[in-house]
């Protein structure tokens, strides 16, 4: 579908501060309104209720922040991409800031499938206090637990899908966990998680580090498209060379 009606662009944006409390769907709606406010020449889907052709990347949970979110949008005609970032940002709520827009090659792979690796900053904090005493989520005990996680060969967790509980090994998708140091409430870590063959939510990872811990502030810091052993920034992975050549 991509590119069949016009000119796809990829938009990179943040979701930071108070606005992290809105849902993925709400972000989508905010963008649709912003596109209308800025009067972008949108390409629409066919059918009874035509919608702009927008495709979002990986969902971000309510409450999580991000420095690196992406969405692809199809335009009905080519436009200069340089002024778009500032223009769209102006029509978006505070905290959702478009920091780059690139023209995309026709038939570039969809973001959902293309992105294979995500980097997070995850704060590990004490969970609800238990009878046994105070939970220590300072860097030292957390680092010890992290070492145990990274040292294990398998990490089997229960997954509930469509009402059925299945077991899955999530160890292969944990690429890296680094303890950065103390945070106000606990310990700050940075982690890299693959999105294939299964995906791990930050809360699940924290529970694997220690059942007594909880996630505090969570921020997605990077997304990568891995292709032929190379890490590519989603903005650089599938550029529309032809268009740029025409424009110059």
């Amino acid at each position: 579908m991509r590119g069949d009606a016009g000119f796809p662009i990829r938009i990179a944006f943040t979701k930071q501060g108070k606005v992290r409390f809105i849902s993925h769907r709400d972000v989508a709606r905010a963008f649709e309104r912003a596109f209308r406010i800025e009067q972008l020449p949108l390409a629409f889907t066919l059918g009874f209720s035509p919608r702009p052709k927008v495709s979002f990347g990986l969902a971000l949970s309510v409450g999580h922040e991000s420095d690196a979110e992406y969405l692809d949008l199809e335009l009905a005609e080519p436009v200069a991409v340089e002024p778009l970032a500032a223009a769209i940002s102006a029509a978006l709520p505070e905290g959702i800031h478009v920091f780059d827009v690139v023209a995309l090659a026709d038939r570039a792979p969809a973001l959902q499938e293309a992105v294979t690796l995500v980097e997070w900053n995850i704060e590990v904090v004490p969970g609800a206090a238990q009878e046994s005493g105070v939970i220590d989520a300072s860097p030292e005990p957390v680092a010890a637990r992290v070492a145990a996680v990274l040292g294990s060969d398998t990490l089997v967790v229960d997954r509930v899908r469509k009402g059925k509980t299945t077991q899955e090994d999530i160890r292969p998708v944990i690429r890296r966990i680094t303890v950065l140091g103390a945070s106000e409430q606990g310990t700050l870590t940075t982690v890299e998680l693959s999105t294939h063959p299964t995906s791990v939510r930050p809360a699940e990872l924290v529970a694997v580090i220690g059942q007594e811990f909880c996630e505090g502030r969570v921020r997605r810091t990077r997304q990568w498209i891995e292709r032929d052993g190379e890490r590519l920034d989603p903005l650089a992975a599938d550029p529309r060379i032809a268009l740029e050549a025409r424009a110059s």
Partner: peptide, 16 residues
Amino acid sequence: LLAGVEKPARYIGMER
């Protein structure tokens, strides 16, 4: 407190 409530965005304001 918002991490633990339903629809936290009810309380953030920030509307256009």
